[in-house]
Amino acid sequence: MNTIHYLMDPVQRGLFLPGIVVGLGVAVMCSLLSVLVVLKRLSFIGQGVSHAAFGGVGIAAVLGLAAGGAAYLGVIVLFCLASAWLIAWLSERRGASSDTAIGIVLVTAMSVGAILLHESVGRARSQPGSFVAPPGWESILFGSSIGVTWTDAALAWGVAAGIVAALWVARRPLLFWAYDEASARAFGVPARAMRLMLMVLLTLAIVASMRLAGVVLATALLVLPGATALRLSDRLRMVMILALVIALAGVLGGIVLCFEADWPPGPSIVAVLTALFLLSRSPFPVGRAGA
């Protein structure tokens, strides 16, 4: 029982507890957004934006910014937003399908990230002491719970609180836009602002999830809880609550799996969430009102 051992031992607890707290904050923000992501079919855009974060990490690394710092995260957020804008521009103004636009931006951002990381690794080797070594590839791609600090935890919960507040404040226009985008403007709902807001919230959630879940797996948290919850209920409030519970269960279950099997945290969380998704297709759907 590694989990109990880790949590009972004060030294180990100090190492792992901040990661767990980050994970719970990430579960809160991603679960609520995941319902919108699934309903608006934005999961591939989410993939595009989260992979763009890899490019952002490359830029932050070549600038010599310390991993996890405010400047580092700021650069990644800006790069992700620029990529989201580029996807919209390519598909709206350049006649590319949104699918193609995402495909192009995704691979370009990954390549930019790979080249810049390569460069900064070389520089860190040639100027040891004066240039910060970038984080390892594996932790960027798949996340790591090692070295997560209480500052990271505070940041994650700050972002979670911001996202929950934004969703609550804009809930009525956001719901109209999500349900019937074509008519929203005719009813005075600022459709563009809603889309922009959702893209910004998604970017913040992706960057906040990256540390723990990594670039590749960050979007899993933005898709699986919502996808699972939508199979269990057709009441919006219940779907939101279920998504939250599923995401929390996924993160906690994934962390236990990570401790017990000594797997990296991101893939462990995804394994649990995917298992829950598959289980939700049980022959006895729960809480399906009016079916």
């Binding site: 309903l39 999500a178 349900y179 019937d180 008519s183 939508l230 209920s233 057709d234 919006l236 779907v239």
Partner: peptide
């Protein structure tokens, strides 16, 4: 609107 384009499974 002409026929709703909304997601029919929208909860």
């Amino acid at each position: 609107p002409q026929r709703l384009e909304a997601e029919m499974a929208f909860p």
